[in-house]
């Protein structure tokens, strides 16, 4: 096994030209007498070769030409979604309802508080100047006095 001889990943590093200095020399020396590692290196080289020779896909050019338009469309959709998202917030409608209710309640309280002293003063006036059917208006008697 390679792992018993050398750190296995050094073989891949050697294959990729990523091993330098004493490590490279030491591994090459090891490979000269270790057939297990040499065979392992060969199989790794084959895997690398298969991948390197595998067919490649090209980027479709028409999409690149249409990229600016696609970008504009994407931005517009982002703008619309951000606008829509403000109205689609779950908290917005309950918050508006709560605000409306609290406004209505505070308005009602204000109205009732402001109208109470008026009614109160009216009732006080009526008490201070009672109109009794048995007693004719005092103002008249007062007026008649010399």
């Amino acid at each position: 096994m390679t792992t018993e001889h050398e750190e296995a990943s050094l073989l891949s590093a050697l294959l990729d030209g990523e091993l330098e200095g004493p490590e490279r020399v030491r591994l090459q020396k090891h490979l000269s007498f270790c057939s297990t590692c040499a065979i392992e290196l060969e199989s790794l080289r084959k895997v690398k070769m298969v991948l390197a020779k595998a067919p490649k896909k090209s980027m479709p050019m028409e999409w690149i030409q249409a990229f600016p338009q696609a970008l504009t469309a994407e931005r517009n959709s982002q703008k619309n979604s951000s606008r829509a998202s403000v109205f689609s917030q779950n908290w917005l409608i309950p918050a508006l309802v709560a605000a409306a209710v609290s406004f209505a309640v505070s308005f009602w309280i204000f109205q009732s508080q402001s109208s109470f002293p008026l009614r109160h003063s009216l009732s006080l006036n009526s008490v201070s100047t009672p109109v009794s059917p048995l007693n004719p208006s005092s103002s008249q008697t007062q007026d008649n006095t010399p």
Partner: peptide, 13 residues
């Protein structure tokens, strides 16, 4: 990176 490349090659093999 070295380890990932190597392990990937072993798995691919």
């Amino acid at each position: 990176v070295r380890s990932r490349v190597h392990q990937a090659r072993l798995l691919l093999k």
